[in-house]
Simulated assay, not measured.
Amino acid sequence: MEMTVEAAKAAARALRADLADRDFPISHSTALELVAHQLGLQDWNTASAILGNRETDGAGIGVPVPVLRVQRFDDVREFYLDFLGFTVEWEHRFEPSMPLYIRLTRGDTRLDLSEHHGDGTPGSVVWINVRNVYRLHAELEQKRYSSQRPGVEPDAPGGPTLDVIDPSGNNLRFCQSDDA
């Protein structure tokens, strides 16, 4: 689901109602601030400005979010968070012993990782548009991730491309295309 101002307000109303049911009442403005923080933003004013400026078509169709199957998030945590620099937007488990479903973000890119058997297929490829693939390459080279030393393929179809493969076999293809 693409987060909009309306969806964020609905999340704040739901949070406020849930906390009130647990004898922990909060104001609507506090709920809005908490939702903004969950989205990784400084405050509600920032969230409202950013969410209000997201482009959609007339039907409200937003940017797709790929779902990648991972066997164990603990095994890919270092890869996505430390090496690639993604942050956790939110995570969900039905129960503590159930598989994890998690949304990661970096810039405008959102990826969902799922330990659920029926979600995604290990070995999938996700093509990610970047403005400067060489800057990303330099950033990754400095991190010295133990099992990856990716290079840039300057003449790849679509533009210079940097491929990295996560511990579950999913390929993230960062491409500097003309429309980046």
Rank of each mutant, 00 (worst) to 15 (best):
Y134T: 03
L34T: 01
C175L: 00
D82V: 01
S124L: 06
F174Q: 02
A11F: 06
G120D: 10
D57G: 01
E141L: 14
L100S: 08
V35I: 13
P96H: 14
R72T: 10
E89M: 03
L100R: 15
V5R: 14
G169R: 05
E89V: 11
L41N: 01
H92S: 04
L81H: 02
D166N: 08
G120I: 06
R131F: 03
D18T: 05
A47G: 07
L15E: 10
N129F: 00
S124K: 05
M98H: 09
L41T: 03
P160M: 14
V152F: 13
Q71Y: 15
L15M: 15
P167W: 09
Y145N: 00
G169V: 10
E95G: 08
Q176N: 03
V67K: 13
G158W: 08
D178I: 02
V88S: 04
I128D: 00
V5N: 15
E55M: 09
D155A: 00
S27A: 12
R149S: 03
E2Y: 09
E153R: 13
R106D: 03
L172M: 07
Y80F: 10
S146G: 00
A11R: 12
N45L: 07
V126Q: 07
T30G: 02
E2I: 07
D163A: 03
Q42F: 14
R77Y: 06
N45H: 11
I61P: 01
A12H: 04
V164E: 03
H28M: 15
D155G: 03
E78T: 14
N129H: 14
G40A: 01
V130H: 04
H37V: 12
G58I: 09
T46E: 11
H117I: 06
L41S: 01
K9F: 04
Q142I: 09
G62N: 09
L51H: 06
P66E: 05
S29L: 04
W44R: 07
P154D: 08
T87D: 06
T121H: 12
S124Q: 13
E55C: 01
R93A: 10
M1T: 10
M3I: 12
D18F: 00
V35A: 07
T161N: 03
A20W: 03
W90F: 13
G60L: 09
D119F: 10
I26M: 05
E91I: 12
